[in-house]
Design a binder for these strands. Structure first.
Lengths: 226, 226
DNA sequence: ACCTGAACACCGTTCAAGT
DNA sequence: ACCTGAACACCGTTCAAGT
């Protein structure tokens, strides 16, 4: 007898499954997220999951949607469009940051999941308010969102192991690989090796990343009306 | 007796294998790129490949390096740093564009493969010339390159099947999914549905993408000295 | 040095069956 | 409606062996 559920309660549901799938991916990476593994975690046969997901891609999509659901879109304010856009994109990054290993799953769910659609529509609204045509807003919005997703996915240390000792080993290996380069042939890369392997501050890393995207939007906007 | 190779010639070599691995990925996607499949294509046992690659990750890394090797870095000119940077980033995109399904493999090879390192060093040079500190040049350069890789990876139609009929079906399904949205709730997304599914011109898509990145760099640069 | 062959531990997924 | 059990076709990879 399961503790907190009546016999009529379904034991499994897609939302719970997606959440624990995300936990597996966060802890051990996407490769460790397996139908059989997830089933085992819920003391159930692998085939039981196929009642809730049509196939593995469907499960991965649900994990992507699960992440996007954490976006807390800021309320509209009276501020200028670019300030509000910065806040919207910051909300996106904030939702993805806890899940660097799984964030890539959101890439193909932006225009499908309800929360992804809400983000996309809101982003386009602000871009149109800023003076972009609908089509340009679509393309600029897409790339902005995709760039920030990749910013999280490529976060230095994201591919590293969660186990602290293995993680430190991985970082050391990368450092050694850059340190082995000829400072004569690659003076700037070797000089910036520490920053490239692990930025001084993650907040600063993300801050600069968002600034780059917003500055790009402002710059392209200014160029269009010239 | 193989036609164009003497008996002393090795039948397999990493470069040839990486090239045909890339062809498989281009034609059928990364999932179809399998050790066993690649071996079969060369009339050889799967285990034969382990003489040339230590494991599958090593093979995928080689494919990423193979793509980066196609970058034709422009010669330095007397032009301003931002103009030259635009040319360098355009060269990156030009090399990746033929391989939208495999381009993601380059993400983790930029700071490892010789051609990736050459691109990174050159990019940082121009950023430093533009007035960025070494560390800022490192972070800005990383994100610029990653954004453009993702631009290719997320190219509309990249995930689609290569078979023209299946491809058309996929596009139709996506179109239908956006067309099914409420134009009241999502007025801008539904209005821009065609552009979001398949941009009018791929050259324009990439042109805008590169402009966004360069404009972002210029904007952040201007902000730093303020 | 380079390749083969058999085997192992894992996948996702099917089909038919249980309750 | 929801889950089980056995089976299938596929993976990456090991180990020992051939030439």
């Amino acid at each position: 007898m399961p503790p907190t559920s009546s016999p009529t309660t379904k034991r499994l549901d897609p939302h719970t499954l997606a959440t624990s799938a995300l936990e597996i991916a966060d802890a051990e990476g996407l490769d460790a997220l397996t139908i059989r593994r997830l089933a085992q975690l819920h003391d159930v046969t692998p085939m039981a999951l196929y009642r809730h997901f049509s196939d593995k891609d469907d499960l991965l999509a649900a994990v992507g949607d699960r992440i996007l659901a954490d976006i807390a879109l800021p309320e509209p304010t009276g501020e200028p469009w670019d300030i509000q856009l910065q806040a919207v994109l910051t909300a996106l990054v904030k939702a993805l940051r806890p899940h660097p290993k799984a964030a890539g799953l959101t890439l193909y769910r932006i225009l499908v999941s309800p929360d992804g659609l809400a983000l996309a529509e809101r982003t386009m609204e602000l871009l149109v308010e800023g003076g972009f045509s609908t089509d340009n807003a679509a393309e600029v919005g897409r790339q902005s969102v995709c760039s920030l997703i990749t910013l999280v996915t490529a976060e230095p240390g994201a591919t590293e192991d969660t186990d602290p000792v293995a993680r430190e080993d991985g970082l050391r290996a990368k450092r050694a690989s850059l340190a082995a380069l000829s400072p004569h042939r690659y003076p700037l890369i070797t000089a910036a090796a520490d920053t490239l392997i692990c930025p001084a501050s993650h907040d600063q890393y993300y801050g600069l990343g968002i600034d780059l995207v917003v500055a790009g939007i402002r710059g392209v906007r200014a160029g269009l009306q010239a």
